[in-house]
Design a binder for these strands. Structure first.
Lengths: 334, 334
DNA sequence: CTGAAAGCGCTAACAG
DNA sequence: CTGTTAGCGCTTTCAG
């Protein structure tokens, strides 16, 4: 398993062509470093020898690794793999490598992983913080040595942030259901400390305040078990009084749909439900869901990482709505 | 965003303590390189200065990066994030970093990513090949310079392989449904070229040969669309003649369940269904599913990567069955 | 247009 | 127990 092929370094190539390593280096860096014929010979010999360059040596010299760290709170939430995929594609296109780490929903693990990533000398760190408050110090610390970009979630600090327009996303769900005649709204899937969850709840309250004063009493704050089961007690109290549910994830949306149906309510006739992130779960369970513009987010993240200027929408990227059976809406949507 | 904190190198520490860099290096490598008091001073000063070592320089010297590349065929298949998570945890525990890449289901992208990973000088490559045949050459090529471990899928080459016992996994599903009195089996989710899919189909045929000769005619080879929709035509032909379906993924299992219910069949009464990978999809849709021992796989992969000897089951790791409503089985299972 | 020389930060002989 | 020296492979002044 050791490297059989004997190392072919820049010196091997230089010697074979009969020039200095400096010349070979210039040629490969593209900065028109040598004469026409020499350049050709170098390229030919290098490819014959299978010279690939040594990125470690280059990094030591240049103090750059062309590698970024990506730290997500939980790989098991299908939104993150989807986001990672978009970012990975964009980064690879720019010649950047992706060191992945998972915080496992723990601020402690998160701090530890940040350390590990910095020790590996990543050029920048892309992070979706576990907690809006408790993740702050670790991130501020990282900010002292690398570029940090927060994506999806944020932790109120000096690092850049790339995310969607939370107000618009909630509005999308609300308006869609209002057009269907729904008037009594509920909110499910609040997760304390998760910035996106806090934002969505905040806008839900703000936007329903005038149209449905009772909405603020129909908030589901806690779920149970793996599949985010909806507590019976909550349904006892609210199922009759609501006809539309806004959620923070497809998982909770599906659970809500199942729980309601088990109790004899029909979805969407009695209660309409909108999920979030448009994962496979939503497709399979026929749940209307809010889709984040993953490629736009990835592009923005990449721009920050690469130090490129890129005009971002001030309030975040707009989402779109994918309409399915759980709202049975057929009306067009923006 | 540049590194504000001025670099503190091993020389900084050495000078502050008044010893040579070699001594500091020895102390940090643990190889009892210095006297009691000197060792203490070095540790104290180093931590005061916030010395973290430079992994790039170390790598250049040692010809190791303590980083492994992980190449998966598709991040959107929820099995892979789950596997990645298990591997990430195990690798981090061993001080190894994880460079992630996604083949996007394409052999071409896969070959390209392997290149990129090797150029970054990963110590080893963990890969789940896109295609059982077409991935071969790229992997063989990689094998010439690093340790390669195939996981889940394989591509018939000289690289190590870590995976489950395919025969046992199919048996698990079949036996469970036989105990429930089912006799007419079908197989759904065959994906040509994917080694795991080929293996499962092979064992399905082998194991049903004697108990249900008709099984070999009830193979669903092609699906349509995002949610792996089951073709009407296939259902027309087989729905009446089967009472148990073995699948290769939870997604196809859920789709099968929906398609059957839409046609008025009941699951599990008329047809029992077993999914694969026990993802959230299975939990939510109440599908009985086969669970792979992810931690065992991760452990085995890590052992190969770290060069540790570890006794592996000859035919692969055994899976377990998580019983839910789609088979409504209550009988105990091994 | 090209070469010589220095050095990124660390570790591994080899002395003493 | 500790220091000196050399060098991993590359890039980058600085000369010529």
């Amino acid at each position: 398993m050791r490297n059989d092929k004997q190392r072919v370094t820049i010196r091997t190539v230089a010697d074979a062509v009969g020039v200095s390593t400096a010349t070979v280096s210039r040629v490969f860096s593209g900065q028109g470093g040598a004469g026409e014929d020499v350049t050709q010979r170098i390229f030919r010999v290098a490819s014959e020898l299978g010279y690939r360059g040594n990125s470690i040596a280059r990094s030591l010299r240049s103090q750059r690794t062309d590698t970024v760290g990506l730290l997500v709170p939980n790989l098991l939430n299908p939104f993150f793999p989807a986001l990672i995929q978009a970012i990975e594609v964009r980064l690879q296109a720019g010649g950047l490598g992706l060191l992945l780490a998972d915080s496992q929903g723990s601020v402690g693990v998160e701090a530890q992983r940040i350390r590990a990533l910095l020790d590996r000398r990543v050029d920048s760190l892309i992070i979706s913080p576990v907690d809006q408050v408790e993740s702050r110090t670790a991130i501020q610390e990282a900010l002292r040595s690398v570029t940090v970009v927060q994506v999806d979630r944020q932790a109120g600090n000096d690092a850049a942030y790339v995310g969607v327009n939370h107000r618009q996303s909630v509005e999308l769900a609300l308006n869609h259901m209002r057009q269907l005649g729904r008037t009594r709204f509920a909110f499910a899937g609040y997760d304390a400390g998760v910035s996106t969850s806090e934002e969505r709840l905040r806008w839900f309250l703000e936007l329903t305040k005038d149209i449905d004063p009772g909405a603020s009493t129909r908030i589901l704050r806690e779920t149970v078990g793996d599949a985010d089961e909806v507590p019976h007690e909550w349904l006892d109290r609210h199922a009759d009084g609501m006809d539309a549910v806004v959620t923070t994830s497809d998982l909770i949306a599906v659970s809500m749909q199942m729980a309601l149906r088990e109790r004899g309510y029909s979805v969407p006739e009695d209660v309409a439900i909108v999920g979030f992130d448009n994962t496979r779960l939503a497709a399979v369970a026929q749940i209307t869901s809010i889709q984040q513009p993953l490629d736009d987010l990835a592009e923005a993240v990449a721009a920050k990482v690469e130090g490129t200027r890129l005009e971002l929408p001030t309030d975040g990227f707009p989402c779109t709505l994918v309409i399915r059976h759980s709202t049975a809406g057929s009306s067009a949507d923006r």
